[in-house]
Amino acid sequence: MGWSLLNPLIQLMVYFFAFGLIIKVPIDNYFVYLAAGLLPWTFLSQSLITSATSITSRKATCQNTAMPHWIFVLSDISCELFATLIAMSLLLAVAIVTSDHAFLIVTLIVPVLLPIVIFTYGAGLVVAYLGVLYRDLPHLLNLFFSVMFWLTPIIYHWTMVPKTIEVFVKYNPLAMLVGSVQVLLHGGAAPTTDLLIATYVIAGTAAAAGIAMARRIGNGMIYAL
């Protein structure tokens, strides 16, 4: 629990040191920009990597109790969410104090964060069930997220991406989820309706996939544990 809170904060410091103070990425108020991207990202990626072992790590419990297996996924992600919300409220306080758009930020922060949370729970369920069948999924996800971290505008701004390689960043659904938080907290503006709709579509798809899998599979994965 403590580590879940400390991990993003330390990361934030280190990235700010390297990219804010040394490389000097030309973005105003870089610390808030970095935090607005990094906190949702860490929540999302850590949650999904943990979810991949949510069921497999509880083999004994699954074999001795009739608990629905999806509970373990929800429990693991909720733990991450709790730590993220603490860090997020610190960031929110900074953003409200330093921004001229405090009212907008307060009004829109929940509708903007909600798709990320829904997406993570939904995708977490999918990953957890797949993680039972493919035991190296956590390694694969680690690799996936370390690649995606650099393909998502968190350290840099999407306007800095050259047109020729824009395609790598433009259609990245994770960048959309994170992007709406950056627009609100750093830009002090409401995300465009298109962006907001896109994030809810992404979240809805992940949730539908997760719920469908949980209903269809039930506790059937116990035979593969």
């Binding site: 039972v132 069948l133 493919y134 035991r135 190296d136 999924l137 694969l140 994965m221 035979y223 593969a224």
Partner: peptide, 14 residues
């Protein structure tokens, strides 16, 4: 009830 019908693999193995 059938045991051993569902076996886990690794993505690498597949």
């Amino acid at each position: 009830v059938i045991f051993g019908q569902h076996v886990y693999r690794t993505v690498k193995g597949v």
